[in-house]
Design a binder for these strands. Structure first.
Lengths: 188, 188
DNA sequence: CTTTATATTGAATATAAATTCAATGAATTA
DNA sequence: TAATTCATTGAATTTATATTCAATATAAAG
């Protein structure tokens, strides 16, 4: 069935285009017509695929939720090495698989106030902090991470990453940082 | 002239309210009516004070530009101590002088794509990175900071700060991080 | 080839948000 | 007190954006 495949392709194209634009310019400043133009397709057709702008966002967030959201490291891997590796992957995805990278940034943005409620709640339901808290506590016991409230440390860590990734998404020229630097924020 | 003072008061009230809302929910998702309600005043009156939403933003950015944007540390202060102190101030402003804090966050947001061009250009004209680059190079020579491209390091540093501050602005519950942690990202 | 189903378009409509404006009220001045 | 100026309002207007829809084109099935 070439027809059905075509449709699925188109659907994905819309999702990927919207993802890129949402991350580049923000949800509220991305107009439906911008997405349609960029795909490219007529604005009317876009509504044939997604009932509304909000549903389009929701679908993206659903994809984001099913991804590798949880940061669970097996006990045999040192916490610092795990986080460094995670970031290294993420940063290199920026070029090869912008999809994964953008999704990460989007999920962070959708969690903030002012975003459509349903998408926001959904995004907030996947929680990167809790697993990181465990990881940080393990690191603190092992002496590789400094002392301090692990929840605040985990939150700061991911907010830093979010801030850096948003910049990378907005500015092509920005060079990739060393993951080590960011993990350095936790080291003793 | 009580009349003129009143007007000036009102003007400031509008600016401060808009600043808070822009930072909390983002520029595009803050409606003129939201600002008017929050001040509070009628929407019509708001246009008596500022010609447009964009001009209101521009005025805020102008204020942001005249502030202590440049991070210039005298040579006798160690770079790491200077940055730590700067962040400590900023974070404690979050409660006492939310104005300064919010302004910092706003300037970062306005620099991104999708913001009104005039405000964006103006915000981009104040550049926190260059002074920090010098500071970082000095720190590298002194051996307190690790090696690496100073521009990328400075950019990452401020993006991290931006990410953390945005979270603090959006979520009251978030605890204040230790400035040391963030500077730790630069330490060798 | 004919029929049917579906993709596609672009203009029309609906909705939401920004902006204007005529009218009112309160302070200031003469 | 009367006249004048300016602040203030809320409804009307304009503009921007999301959404719908009738019409057309294209592909699939019989």
């Amino acid at each position: 069935m070439t027809r059905k495949e075509q449709k699925e392709e188109r659907r994905k194209a819309i999702l990927m285009t919207a993802l890129r634009l949402f991350v580049e310019r923000g949800y509220h400043d991305t107009k439906i017509t911008d997405i349609a133009e960029a795909v490219p397709m007529s604005t009317g057709l876009l509504f044939h695929y997604f009932g509304s702008k909000e549903e389009l966002l929701l679908e993206l967030v659903r994809m984001g939720c099913s991804g590798p959201g949880t940061v669970t490291a097996p006990d045999e891997i040192p916490p610092d090495a795990y986080l460094t590796g995670f970031l290294r992957n993420m940063f290199s995805f920026a070029k090869e698989q912008p999809w994964v990278f953008c999704m990460f940034v989007l999920m962070g943005q959708v969690r903030r106030p002012g975003m459509p409620e349903e998408a926001r709640k959904l995004a907030q339901s996947v929680d990167a902090v809790s697993p990181t808290v465990k990881l940080i506590k393990r690191g603190q016991k092992a002496g590789v991470f400094h002392s301090g409230d692990a929840v605040t440390m985990a939150t700061c860590f991911w907010c830093s990453v979010q801030g850096i990734m948003e910049q990378m998404a907005a500015d092509e020229r920005m060079k990739m940082p060393e993951p080590e630097w960011i993990v350095g924020m936790l080291r003793s």
